[in-house]
């Protein structure tokens, strides 16, 4: 199988994979295909392959792609390198899609799941009420679960990271308090909780009752969820939530560009 066919198969299966290409220096064009369980191809030297594969796995884990330079025998420090020509490689990684866990099978959920799919998320909808959490109501979701939050976090919590999002739309303290507890115990990048300001305040009291009252915990909660766009429909609300998720990830202000200075892309 060619490197391309191998890569294409893994990309279609949404498996984590990194492609290393020599883009400058000796061995221009050579390829190494790296996955968490395999290394195929060669950049022209065993030690160079080993070092590049190691770095590729780190880039894959971080969801980053970029250029690196090594010596032709895998040297990584100027002392080891001496006068050797540099090998410049491009490490391109494809991580599995980010995940969005939506708790609460309400009207807003379908709109949020749709917008999240546009942004490339793998979407799971979860609600304890069997009549609401149905495939029929959420055909756009990748998975619909009838469950309390606890088991969902036991199963998926360890896999959540900075690119992932948990959106809690239930409005029901019975359900959203355990969902917040579960989300806070993970490394998930975004936790949004829906509700009016009044709901938010009552929820803070309920959270304090279960021992969630530290600033570093409450600071992670985007509650009330979403940016101030003034929208009312489920679709408009979904845009406001997803826009907030993007702005939280990039650390940007979410202000209109014309009202601020500075680079648009960074």
């Amino acid at each position: 199988m060619s490197v391309y066919d191998d890569l294409a198969e893994r990309l279609r299966a949404e498996e984590p994979v990194a492609l290393v290409t020599v883009v400058d220096g000796p061995g221009l064009g050579s390829k190494l295909l790296v996955t968490p369980g395999s290394v195929t191809g060669s950049l022209g030297h065993g030690e160079l392959d080993r070092v590049a594969a190691r770095d590729s796995l780190a880039e894959l884990e971080a969801g980053r792609s970029g250029v690196r330079r090594y010596g032709p025998e895998g040297q990584t420090t100027p002392e080891d390198l001496g006068e050797s020509a540099l090998v410049t490689v491009f490490i391109e990684t494809w991580a599995p899609p980010p995940q969005m866990l939506i708790f609460g099978a309400v009207d807003f959920t379908a709109a949020l799941a749709r917008v999240a799919k546009v942004l490339g998320y793998r979407v799971m909808v979860c609600d304890a009420r069997e009549i609401f959490a149905t495939r029929r109501r959420f055909p756009m979701a990748d998975e619909v679960r009838v469950s309390w939050p606890g088991p969902v976090f036991e199963e998926h919590g360890a896999g959540l990271g900075s690119r992932d999002a948990v959106c809690i739309l239930t409005h029901d303290p019975k359900f959203d308090v355990p969902a917040i507890e579960g989300a806070l115990a993970t490394r998930v990048g975004y936790i949004g909780v829906m509700g009016s300001r009044r709901t938010h305040h009552t929820r803070l009291e309920r959270l304090a009752e279960v021992g969630i009252d530290k600033p570093e915990q409450l600071d992670r909660l985007m509650s009330p969820i979403g940016l101030d766009l003034g929208g009312r429909t489920p679709e408009e609300t979904a845009i406001s939530i997803c826009a907030e998720i993007i702005a939280e990830r990039t650390g940007r202000s979410a202000a209109p560009l014309r009202s601020i200075d500075g680079a648009i892309h960074s």
Binding site: V23, S65, G66, F90, E92, A263, I264, S266
Partner: peptide, 25 residues
């Protein structure tokens, strides 16, 4: 293209300085 035997060139963004409209990759 590959199945029909058509030759193909591939261009990929490997690095960006400052403002860039598309991401690396």
């Amino acid at each position: 293209w590959r199945h029909s035997g058509t030759r193909v060139a591939l261009a990929r963004v490997v690095d960006i300085d400052g403002s860039g409209p598309r991401d690396i990759g």
